[in-house]
Design a protein around this nucleic acid. Structure first.
Lengths: 187, 187
DNA sequence: TTAACTGTACCGGCTGGACGGTTTACAGTA
DNA sequence: TACTGTAAACCGTCCAGCCGGTACAGTTAA
């Protein structure tokens, strides 16, 4: 098992968290192996022991983001008692736009991986393809539901890049309206 | 005057176009001064004459993107005869999601600038702040209109990163639905 | 004994940027 | 028209530093 005597949890996880922090705090351009290992409290050798190359680190980062998002959506789904047929769509709204800290860095991570190698977005592309496929096969108003999902993406992206200008009330209005649109998509 | 004997138009513009091409074709990570100067048919020294640092090049790229977008929206606005009060909002849909090649590289450029230095997004942040401000002062349904704008961002982002999975018909449906939502936002 | 590291030293390639020199455009002048 | 001075525009080379990655000998805990 991994040694967890110097930090919290296994080193591999600590490295990924540190990488996220580095991206958010100093930008994707300075996401270097040295910076990550230092932020994780791990030697460079130790970092390369877990991730044999920078590419593999970024790949794991992208995968972790997808997993986190699906986790957040699943949690939100369970919290919705009466969702009707719009339950899944509403879970996306609440899950992605909710307050879970795991998704705070999403856009930055997406950015970092994309900036280094567009091929690393494959895992995300797959996820979107699947989502689109499922949507087109369900009995939902495809365009309406897609707009809800796209608006979620847009808002999340703005917030991750810190270029959003909505006040707290405005954001709440928007989320509420998205929930309403989600319901409408099934009528 | 600038020498334009080796290419089309003044060198400065050629450099910016070349930078866009480089980002789109080989990725933001390989947007180097050498690559840009080579793609522009200009020496590295010549490149650095026009843009004294890489940062200034990226800044100009971001500015160019904002200008292009406003240009596309303005053009779209003029093409809408009967827009009613939703004219501006509809112009955003058609302008940003239209076929103008100037915006094809938008996401990639945004990506490149953000990846190198988050501070370079300032010009975009200002634009969004202004847009949000104007929206909140108009008599539009704020949440609905915001969702339209956010969905535009989301779709543009997916397409720029080439992670979109919509078919041509699906995309058309979505754009049409966005236009409908834009109208509804004023009723 | 083995897996999971640490620490240090090192390397080759790439990158941003500096710099000195060269060409081009053009205004002034006679 | 021819000449000339000057400044803008541009070229090509060089360099210091950083970054990803390697190598390897030691250390710790199970």
């Amino acid at each position: 098992m991994a040694a967890d005597h110097t930090g919290i949890g296994p080193a591999r996880e600590r490295v990924l968290e540190a990488a996220e922090r580095v991206v958010v705090e100093v930008g994707a351009a300075r996401l270097t192996l040295d910076a990550v290992s230092q932020a994780a409290g791990v030697s460079k050798g130790g970092l390369l022991y877990h991730f044999p190359s920078k590419e593999s680190l970024l790949g794991a980062l992208a995968q972790r983001y997808v997993d986190s998002m699906q986790g957040c959506i699943a949690t939100a789904r369970d919290a919705i008692e009466d969702g009707g047929s719009a339950r899944d769509l509403k879970a996306c709204v609440l899950g992605v736009l909710g307050s879970d800290p795991r998704l705070k860095a999403m856009g930055a991570v997406l950015l970092a991986t994309a900036a280094n190698d567009l091929a690393l977005l494959e895992v995300i592309r797959e996820r979107i393809t699947q989502q689109t496929q499922e949507l087109s096969e369900s009995d939902v108003d495809f365009a309406r539901a897609s707009i809800v999902l796209l608006a979620i993406d847009g808002l999340k992206m703005r917030e991750s890049l810190r270029i959003s200008a909505f006040s707290a009330e405005q954001r709440e209005q928007i989320v509420n309206e998205l929930m309403k649109l989600a319901d409408e998509a099934y009528r």
